[in-house]
Design a protein around this nucleic acid. Sequence first.
DNA 1: GTATACTGGTTGACATATCAACTAATTTTC
DNA 2: GAAAATTAGTTGATATGTCAACCAGTATAC
Lengths: 147, 147
Amino acid sequence: MKKHIGRVLSILHRQSQIYFTHALKEFNLTSAEYPFLMYLYKQDGITQDNLSSYLYIDKAATARSIKSLEQKGYITRSKDTKDKRCNHVYLTPLAKETSEDIKKRVFHWSELLTEGMDIESTDLIYCMLETMVTKVEQMNFKTETED
Amino acid sequence: MKKHIGRVLSILHRQSQIYFTHALKEFNLTSAEYPFLMYLYKQDGITQDNLSSYLYIDKAATARSIKSLEQKGYITRSKDTKDKRCNHVYLTPLAKETSEDIKKRVFHWSELLTEGMDIESTDLIYCMLETMVTKVEQMNFKTETED
DNA sequence: GTATACTGGTTGACATATCAACTAATTTTC
DNA sequence: GAAAATTAGTTGATATGTCAACCAGTATAC
């Protein structure tokens, strides 16, 4: 019996968007914006390009989300003094103050999904999903699938 | 160390959209449309509502994808004779002729992701992802998260 | 040093999905 | 059986993301 992993991955993605839309509403954040904040909590001051690469999000989408986060007061931007093409993105006090509450909501989603599962299984699944991501990184569909 | 499963699920979802956009281009199918065909291959003649429920896709999105599949000649629709609200969706000869080739492309994506993993692990991950989907099914964020 | 290629970021066009409002058909309630 | 509630499907507004084209700045080639 062949398995089709795409269906479940799509469902979990769509449902997570719905969850975050509601869970982050009180912070005036959307499901598209929070991933950038989450990475900035680990690496404040990185460039938009770094954010795009880490999240595998198109640089156009990154530009728009970062712009929105700036307007909402969560981040500021400043050009690199040496390489004037680069925008460095920094967390504002607002972002820092609310970080624990925001993170709590974000991790809650993972907890909901893995609730009741034993720790070995959840570790394994995280590990395997990460492996899949690194595999995807090495692919190049646009040319490969032209057969 | 807290884990955030959302990031990897999002990445895999977005990358799969990119893969399917290219892999199904020669069939004139999009990443949004193929999931409906996949389910119809198992259950020809079901209603749009059934498709929405199975795929956890909003009925509005289903309506638009089904309309597009109809225009492309992959499916036909007919109203239920007893319950005139329901649209039954049927595969056309075109859909049936191309089914094996389409399925091959779809399963190829799963194979790429799980390549090199042992069968016990992939079985487990499918099982756990399915479990997560059933969990999501029982949630109701819209009200729950209003705390 | 100038021409060429590449890189980071922005913008416009388009695809995909959700939500809300609506219609039409059906079911429930009384 | 008429009013009210529910259900299947459609449409409009909006959010998210990709791709392509573009600009400006940087790096490479000669």
